[in-house]
Amino acid sequence: MSTAVLAAPFQAVFDANSQEFSLVGVIRPRSVDEIAHSITEFRRAIDEARGVLYINVKRLAQMNNTAFHAFSRVVLDACRTRSDIRFVVVTSSVVGWTERMFRHLGKIEPQITVEVYDSKFYPGQSFVEDTSFIPILRAQTKMTWRHERTILPRHGMRPGIAMADICCGIGDFAVLAQKEFQPARIVALDHSKPSLAYAREVAAEFGVTGIEYTYGDASEMLLEDNQFDFVTCRHSLQIFNQPELLLKELYRIVKPGGRVYITNEKNSHCLGEPRAQSIQWTYNELARLLSHFEMDVELGPKGRRYLADAGFDDILVESFMITNLDGDPQDFADVIAGWEKMFAAMAARHGEAPEFIDRFRQGFRDHIFAALHPKGYAGWPIWAASGRKPL
Rank of each mutant, 00 (worst) to 15 (best):
E148K: 15
I368Y: 09
F87N: 00
F360L: 03
D334I: 02
A310Q: 02
T3E: 10
F228I: 00
E99I: 00
V88Y: 00
E224L: 11
E201L: 09
M63H: 01
S31T: 12
Y122H: 12
S92N: 03
F343C: 13
A287K: 05
I368H: 08
P329M: 04
D165T: 02
G303L: 14
Y54V: 03
G338T: 06
E294H: 15
F293I: 05
L105W: 05
V24Q: 07
K193C: 12
E352D: 12
R288K: 09
N65A: 14
R304H: 06
K193Y: 15
E294W: 09
D229G: 02
K120M: 09
L372M: 12
E318I: 12
M221A: 05
D33E: 14
E249P: 05
R365Y: 13
A7S: 15
I239C: 04
E318M: 09
E180T: 10
P29A: 08
I55T: 00
R158L: 07
S119H: 14
A337V: 11
S31D: 12
L222E: 08
S126Q: 15
T232A: 04
A371V: 06
D331N: 07
A199R: 02
L391A: 14
E34N: 04
R50F: 03
W339C: 13
K107T: 15
Q140E: 15
R200N: 08
A203L: 01
A67H: 00
D309G: 03
E109H: 01
R44Q: 07
R146E: 11
I134V: 12
D118I: 06
A378R: 11
R146V: 14
K107V: 15
L325E: 13
E298L: 10
I211R: 00
I336Y: 08
P9K: 01
A139M: 12
D47R: 04
V57L: 04
A8R: 13
R86N: 07
D328W: 03
I368M: 07
Q362D: 14
T98K: 02
K266F: 04
V128P: 08
F133T: 06
I315Y: 07
G210Y: 02
L271K: 15
E244N: 09
R50I: 00
M1Q: 14
R43Q: 07
I151P: 01
S319G: 13
W97S: 02
D47A: 11
T113Q: 13
A337N: 12
E220F: 07
I279A: 10
A4K: 15
I35G: 06
R349W: 15
S18Q: 11
V254Q: 03
